[in-house]
Design a protein around this nucleic acid. Structure first.
Lengths: 338, 338
DNA sequence: ATCATCCCTGTAATCGATTCCACGGCGTCG
DNA sequence: CGACGCCGTGGAATCGATTACAGGGATGAT
């Protein structure tokens, strides 16, 4: 593979001149410039990004560590993150933590070793020593979706409290009183916040949230199934199951089906995180939709700001309720499907 | 960030010795080794992967260019690719081509510029000049899922002909005679092969595949919707729509719903590529499942073989039919759901 | 004509690793 | 006792870029 030296030789100039042309430095004569350009495409020369990174101490690469790529919400987030990053001239390396803290640490390690310019993280846990160390070390870092209290980096996330309140009101309006939730891991902010928002919204309507109606999940489908089986085995099972993410909702649906029950006839179902498939499930599932594309864009921009020395903004965008048929029909509550 | 020089100074040895310790070179005295190790973790030193890559001319990184991350099939593929690569000591950089050839080229460009050790590609088109050039240049490269005729690199893919034949037989057994297909782009191998397999299987049963029953899609949901609308507008619409991937099946389902028709009562639906959501759609969708994890593993291994100087294997694994309810009930044809 | 200035260019240092080569010390063998 | 070989070590070259610095030539001003 041709190097800058070969180009210099071919063009009859020094490597410095070649470098200047490539970086469109002003002080190069028109003649030298054309000769260099000719040599560059005669040789099919492409600058070695590794060498360039070593010298300039920047890689124009962002690291994105997400909790679970197979979760459509995160897939979509990753896709928009890459899109915005590309628009700003960055590449993205995605690390999939699979909701496993040690895997998350592994990815952070290798990303730092590769000297990525900044890190976008949706933490799978409450924060490892490594994560604190990285944040303290001055590596530009932004939390997206989930964050870690006590680590002082910008956070870009959706606020679901309003939408959860809307959801609970919707359920209440349909006559449901016994509402259960499948929570995410307590170590994640989204795990806690969604339960709290749910509890608060219920309290406002004078409903209690007994412990038996709080299932412990881990944002994976299997845990949604287990938690739902637990609910269904109660003497007085809930009338509604609200899953704190889409995969657990899928598991819940499995468990309900396995019992031979029907949604929403026998039990209602709702989920946090809306995804295209929810339109096509049987029945279509009522969900709380996050503005994923906007979150991704804001997160990348905050990180780029941090990297390039500007002042980054923490951003919180509202999530919104999307009513479908999985909680029952309600003539006063019709909305568009997507 | 501490460099090897700092470690050398701290340990009172030369950088050469530090490097030897880090690479577990044999000829280092036990004493020097312990001093170096002490210095390394006193300083929290981590080798700079960029510098190392420059010197050794290898990055221990693979590039994966896929046609569409939002397609659950490719998401899953990517996830298993990363898993296997990690097991072999490689990182993965994913480039999402979004079924756009120019974006695919962009990603190949930047990956090559970053000097990835090898490239895993599921081409979105029939092959750009760039792709041919890269293949010829000796960059280790492997095609996965789709491939490009005339470019001589190992191919890891699933063979769907058997499964398609099973599907057509299943449909025939249910009494369906007018079968339509939504094809993928003609520039992709999977786009063509699936149509050919379908046509052949139909011919074997004495069924014709009129041109009007071949819809042209691009593996995206919207095209599945359009093609299906076309079918439904025919004087004699098909009894079955077979979508060549899961997203087009989703679009087909949309179009069928929009017409107020029911699956499978009014029209049957089947898809290539099975995904977890197909169990939960209304109705559950009959699909052809690829052994995604095995494909991913085989592809990474072939690429690693190529990189490390062993002889790589092209691999073709069989896909299999998974019957659900979207084509109608058939007592003789019951299988487990997943 | 002389000198300062500006423009263009090249030489060389540098980034942080790896690795070839040479060298000093010590043990072994004849 | 001398030669040889081996082991551990350090110096320095190298990978492919960027960039500070210096120098040469042309130009303009005085």
């Amino acid at each position: 593979m041709a190097s800058i030296k070969d180009v210099a030789a071919q063009a009859g100039v020094s490597v410095a001149t070649v470098s200047r042309v490539l970086n469109s430095h002003p002080s190069v004569s028109a003649e030298a410039r054309t000769r260099v350009i000719a040599a560059v495409d005669a040789l099919g020369y492409r600058p070695n990004a590794v060498a360039r990174s070593l010298r300039t101490a920047q890689t124009r690469t962002l690291g994105l560590v997400i909790s679970d790529v197979l979760n459509p919400y995160f897939t979509e987030l990753a896709r928009f993150v890459e899109e915005e990053a590309r628009a700003l001239g960055y590449s993205v390396i995605i690390g999939n933590a699979d909701e496993r803290p040690e895997l998350q640490d592994h990815h952070i390690r290798t990303l730092i070793d590769r000297r990525i310019d900044g890190l976008l993280v949706s933490p799978a846990d409450g924060g490892s020593p490594l994560m604190r160390e990285v944040a303290l070390s001055g590596t530009p870092m932004v939390f997206v979706d989930r964050w870690i209290p006590g680590i002082d980096v910008p956070v870009v996330r959706a606020d679901g409290t309003g939408a959860v309140r809307d959801l609970v009101a919707h359920l209440h309006g349909l006559g449901h009183r016994r509402l259960a939730i499948i929570a995410g891991p307590a170590a994640t902010t989204t795990g806690n916040e969604r339960v709290e928002a749910f509890r608060d919204a219920m309290r406002e309507l004078g409903l209690a949230l007994p412990d038996a109606y709080i299932g412990q999940g881990d944002f994976q489908a299997a845990s949604g199934r287990r938690a739902t089986e637990g609910f269904l085995a109660l003497d007085e099972p809930p009338e509604v199951v609200f899953a704190a993410d889409n995969l657990m909702a899928l598991g819940a649906l499995d468990a309900i089906r396995a019992r031979g029950l029907r949604v929403p006839g026998d039990i209602a179902l709702a989920a946090f995180d809306d995804i295209p498939w929810f339109v096509h499930t049987d029945p279509p599932i009522t969900a709380i939709a996050q503005p994923t594309a906007d979150l991704a864009r804001a997160a990348v921009r905050a990180l780029a700001d941090l990297i390039e020395g500007r002042t980054p903004q923490s951003v919180t965008l509202p999530a919104r309720l999307v009513v479908r048929r999985s909680c029952g029909q309600d003539a006063t509550d019709q909305r568009s499907d997507r």
